[in-house]
Amino acid sequence: MKTAPLIGIARHRLTIDGEGVTTLVAFHGCPLRCKYCLNPTSLSPDGVWKSYDCSELYEEVRQDELYFLASCGGVTFGGGEPLLQTDFIRQFRQLCGSEWRITVETSLNVPLQNIEELITVVDNYIVDIKDMNTTTYQQYTGKNNENVLRNLHYLIEKDKAGQIIVRTPLIPSYNTDEDIDHSIELLKEMGINQFDRFTYKTPKND
């Protein structure tokens, strides 16, 4: 049974991480090194709260199954980067069945194979796109956005556009409202229509 390191589990989240009542399961580990990381624990060598195998996690979260079923909710995998844990998520789906909604909060900056392996497993995607501008993205995350764009195109080609919410944050010192407008325009041209627009709280704008 696959085991994965977690930084935490948060229960009874209502319409925060997807539809209905959800439990957020946050994985340790991320391919990005964002300047203002929202979950720095996911990068810290000492950040692992607990390691679970799929069966242990299922038993932990199934206590809220009635809430999931009544609200069309389920489990949201975040982190860190949940799509680094494809085997774990696939095995978890086998345990929980098809009635729970599985959502991933992801940067999509992973190999295409990771997306392909979960295409029949994941119901919804909350994608933190940062910014569509390649230079801005690399300056902020430390990586280029080639994987992000390729994976987003792949999901759209697989008719998943309606299951994707893209987060388009204003990141002080890195992009502007006009940059976000441009990112949203490009994403709409690709077929994305659901956006979460907000401003990062950073040490410079507290």
Rank of each mutant, 00 (worst) to 15 (best):
T22S: 13
T22K: 13
T23N: 12
L24R: 10
V25N: 07
V25S: 06
A26E: 06
H28C: 07
H28A: 10
H28N: 11
G29F: 03
C30M: 08
L32M: 12
L32N: 05
R33H: 14
C34G: 03
K35W: 10
K35V: 15
Y36W: 07
Y36G: 00
L38Y: 11
N39K: 09
N39D: 07
N39C: 03
N39M: 01
P40N: 06
P40M: 04
T41I: 11
T41M: 11
S42A: 15
S42M: 08
S42L: 08
S42Q: 10
L43E: 01
L43T: 04
S44I: 08
S44R: 11
S44N: 13
P45V: 06
P45Q: 10
D46V: 05
D46C: 02
G47K: 00
V48Y: 00
K50N: 06
K50A: 04
S51Y: 04
S51N: 12
Y52A: 05
Y52C: 03
D53P: 00
C54R: 07
S55T: 14
E56L: 03
L57I: 06
Y58K: 14
Y58T: 13
E60W: 02
V61Q: 01
Q63S: 14
Q63F: 06
E65W: 04
E65K: 15
L66A: 15
Y67N: 14
Y67P: 05
Y67L: 15
A70H: 13
C72W: 12
G73M: 09
G74D: 10
G74A: 14
T76D: 07
T76E: 06
F77V: 11
F77Q: 11
F77E: 08
G78H: 01
G79T: 05
G79C: 05
G80K: 03
E81K: 09
E81F: 00
P82R: 06
L83S: 07
L84A: 09
Q85M: 11
T86N: 12
D87S: 15
D87Q: 15
D87K: 14
F88V: 07
F88E: 05
I89P: 00
I89L: 12
I89S: 08
R90P: 04
R90T: 14
R90L: 12
F92E: 08
F92A: 09
R93V: 02
Q94M: 14
Q94A: 14
Q94T: 15
Q94D: 15
S98Q: 13
E99V: 11
W100T: 01
W100G: 03
R101P: 05
I102V: 09
I102G: 01
T103M: 05
T103V: 13
V104P: 04
V104S: 02
V104Q: 02
V104T: 10
E105S: 02
T106Y: 00
S107I: 00
L108K: 02
L108P: 01
N109G: 03
N109W: 01
N109C: 07
V110G: 05
V110Y: 03
P111Q: 09
P111F: 02
P111R: 09
L112E: 15
L112T: 15
L112A: 15
N114F: 02
N114A: 10
N114E: 09
I115N: 05
I115R: 03
I115E: 02
E116S: 09
E116H: 05
E116A: 06
L118D: 00
L118C: 05
L118H: 06
T120F: 03
T120G: 06
T120Q: 11
T120E: 12
